[in-house]
Write a protein that binds this DNA or RNA. Structure first.
Lengths: 111, 111
DNA sequence: ACGCTCCGTTCAGAAAAGGAACCTAAACCC
DNA sequence: GGGTTTAGGTTCCTTTTCTGAACGGAGCGT
C-alpha cells in the first residue's frame, strides 16, 4: 500500500491517516489548537526543519485542515488557521491526549 | 526535535505520537482491533513491507501496546494481541474514525 | 526428499528527512 | 541610505528510513 492510496481506503481511520498520519503533521495541528498559527512559531515549537514544515503546512492546506491567510499585507506575511474540518479534529486529539496522559508518563526508563 | 525525544515531551499528545505516530503503526493497532493478530495477516492487510512490519511490531511490543504470544508451540509461531494499554487506545481510534468518516469521504478529487 | 506455511532477516536501490545556508521583502535603526 | 532584524520560505548536500524482492529456518504433509 502506497501512502496516497490510503486516502481511498475503505477504512475511515486509514483515510484520516492519509492526512495526519505523519510524524509532524498531527503535532502542527495540535499547535494550532494551542493557539499557534505562524511558520516561525511552529518551527520553534517543534524543532522541525523548515523544509519539512513548509511541506506539511502546504499539505494541510491542500487537505482543507488549515487555511493560509495573509495577516499582514505591507510586509506580506501569512499564517495558518484551523478550518471547520481542522477544528473538528478536536475529539480525536483529545482521545490521543487522554491515552498519552494515562499510558505514557514522562519518564525515561523503568527502574 | 528527534523522534525519540517525543517520548519525554511535556505534551501527552506528543508522547502518544512517539509510539503510534507512524505511517503503519496505528494501522497495525487498528487491525488488532479488527481481530487480526498474525504477521501474515497484517502484511496482507496493509501491504507493508515485511521488514517494516517486523520493526513496528517489535516497537509496539516494547511500548507495551501489543503482546507477543506463542499460539503454536510445535511449529513455534507467534501472534500479537492487544494489551490493556493497547485496548485503551480504542477511544482515540474512534475519534480518528469519526473524523475520517465525516471529513474524508471516499473520492479521488473534488468535482 | 520436496514443497508449503509462517515468521521473520538481509541487501541494494529509492525516497524522505535532517541541517545549514541562502533568498526576498519590508521594517527598523542610525 | 546602508546594515541589521524579522518572517516565511527555498535550495543544497548528507544521513536516515523505506521499499521490493530474495533468502532463511523450522516444522508439517505427502
Amino acid at each position: 500500500m502506497k501512502w496516497d492510496d490510503l486516502s481511498t481506503d475503505w477504512c475511515p481511520v486509514a483515510r484520516a491517516m492519509s492526512v495526519i498520519g505523519d510524524r509532524w503533521t498531527l503535532l502542527i495541528v495540535r499547535d494550532c489548537f494551542l493557539g499557534k498559527s505562524r511558520f516561525e512559531q511552529f518551527q520553534k515549537s517543534l524543532s522541525v526543519t523548515r523544509h519539512i514544515l513548509a511541506d506539511r503546512l502546504k499539505r494541510l492546506v491542500e487537505a482543507g485542515v488549515l487555511e493560509r491567510n495573509a495577516y499582514s499585507s505591507r510586509p506580506l506575511r501569512y499564517d495558518y488557521v484551523l478550518t471547520d474540518k481542522g477544528r473538528d479534529f478536536a475529539p480525536a486529539l483529545v482521545g490521543l491526549k487522554d491515552w498519552g496522559k494515562k499510558h505514557m508518563p514522562v519518564r525515561k526508563a523503568a527502574g
